[in-house]
Structures are given as structure tokens and as C-alpha cells.
Amino acid sequence: MTVSPDELKRRIESEIPGTRAAVSGDGHHFEAVVEGPAFAGLSRIAQHKLVYDVFGTELGDRIHALSLKITPTEDR
């Protein structure tokens, strides 16, 4: 079953409160531009892990690759 960019967007936004995501992809390889207050103060590794954790073992499997560009925003 292929994955839609829309599904990824919805899941990122619903599982990481306050986050906005723009996702594009071909069903296997995806690129996501993500921003939100949840990333503020975290190391890059931790920022990426936060998003990876939304998908768990689907990464590398159902979702072959997910390229991330993450911007922390101020919480307000």
C-alpha cells in the first residue's frame, strides 16, 4: 500500500502539537518541511527523532525515505 504525502502531513501535525508540515513525495520517498514550537531547544538529532518517532518502523519500510527540513518556531 502506498503512502500519500497528505497522510504524512496529517500524522505529523496531529502527533506533534502546534506543528505545521508541507510534505511532497512519490509514495515511497518523501520530503517534509516542518515547523513548530515542539522543536525549539532540541538538538538536530532530537528534532529529527521527534518526527521519525511518528512513523516508527514504517520508516525504511512502507515509507522508504523521509527527508526532513525542520524549523523550530517560538511558542506563543
Binding site: I45, H48, K49, L66
Partner: peptide
């Protein structure tokens, strides 16, 4: 490493990240 994807770069025993992070850095 707790990191799900490949590649993974380690410097002095610490995970730096995958492709996105390495390129950004």
C-alpha cells in the same frame, strides 16, 4: 543509535545524523 534510517554518520562516537543533517551542517 535509535536512528531508523541509513546513512548514519558518527563523529568521535556520537551520532551526528543522516543525510539531511550532514548537509545542513
Amino acid at each position: 543509535s535509535g536512528w531508523p534510517t541509513i546513512p548514519q554518520l558518527f563523529v568521535r562516537g556520537e551520532l551526528v545524523g543522516g543525510c539531511d543533517i550532514v548537509l545542513e551542517m
